[in-house]
């Protein structure tokens, strides 16, 4: 007899249940059979994830870019090791073909590697030395915005999800990812990838739950600096933007593929530093 899985949240490198004690069942795509029970994050779980992200950002954001690249590459290695688990999970819960599932996993692994390679390159591509008209050295460099909430509500595609996570993460942001109803079970193996890749605790946190319940708190949380919105419901997007004005959040709608450098630089601030030149 198979053991029934319970999928828990991923906060600060740990796998806690929801503090609310709530969970909901996920079925196999084509039946009433329960695939797993999964924790349903509450407002307080979101808060705990943001607190963890704050700690995580301090290590992740100040790591050398080379180190971040190594860790992102390590994620690809760990994901490769879990290929069968990912493929099985995608097939079981989404009902997609073996070919399609493998394609999505390929794309996810590619995305880890692609952004691993970007972690120490986007700076030179987006930074500038400014030819100011005076005796000053002026340069502009990217700086991670801090904590980014990533909402994955609709248009689920494993490759796109990883691409969005890795592009935001590559610059040194920490993440609170909210997985919507389409494929919440992906949390488990994905969290295991993160937990075994030398990623600092809290640098990426994964939650599952009901977006309608969580988004007002995402929008109004003052520590969340930016939101990447992959959801169809513009009502929610607009509402998050509106709530986000409380701390001037950068809210980026992200349903379709964009220029990959832009995917990174949408979640950085540019800092211009001036210094005199003179003996």
């Amino acid at each position: 007899m198979k053991v029934l899985k319970t999928i828990k949240l991923f906060i600060g490198g740990e796998f806690p249940r929801s503090e609310s004690g709530r969970s909901f069942p996920i079925n196999f795509h084509d039946s009433e059979k329960i695939y797993a029970n999964i924790a349903q994050a509450s407002r307080k779980d979101l808060r705990a994830a943001v607190e963890a992200a704050e700690v995580g950002q301090k290590s992740w954001g100040f790591m050398t870019a080379y180190n971040r690249a190594q860790i992102l590459y390590r994620m690809a290695e760990m994901a490769e090791g879990k290929r069968h688990e990912f493929v099985g999970l995608l097939k079981d819960t989404l009902g997609i073909s073996d070919k399609e599932a493998n394609k999505q996993v390929d794309e996810a692994i590619d995305a880890f590697i692609y952004y691993a390679g970007f972690a120490d390159k986007f700076q030179q591509m987006s930074a500038a030395v400014n030819p100011v008209a005076g005796p000053h050295h002026s340069f502009t460099t990217p700086d991670p915005v801090g904590i980014v909430a990533l909402i994955c509500e609709s248009h689920f595609d494993f490759g796109r999800l990883v691409s969005n996570i890795a592009s935001v993460s590559a610059s040194g942001n920490s993440l609170v990812v909210v997985l919507g109803p389409e494929c919440p079970a992906i949390l488990q193996p994905l969290a295991e990838v993160f937990a075994t890749s030398d990623l600092p605790k809290g640098a990426i946190n994964l939650l599952t739950g009901h977006l309608k319940e969580l988004y007002p708190h995402i929008g109004s949380h003052m520590e969340i600096r930016s939101v990447s919105c992959q959801n169809e419901d513009t009502e929610i997007l607009y509402e998050i933007k509106k709530l986000g004005t409380s701390n001037m959040k950068r809210v980026v709608p992200r349903y379709e593929n964009v220029d990959s450098l832009k995917a990174i630089t949408d979640f950085v601030e540019f800092k211009t530093v001036w210094h005199p030149i003179g003996t």
């Binding site: 005796p135 000053h136 005199p276 030149i277 003179g278 003996t279």
Partner: peptide
Amino acid sequence: PHYPVDRVGTT
């Protein structure tokens, strides 16, 4: 005393 002076600011 050590008393640094910045050239650009002085100018």
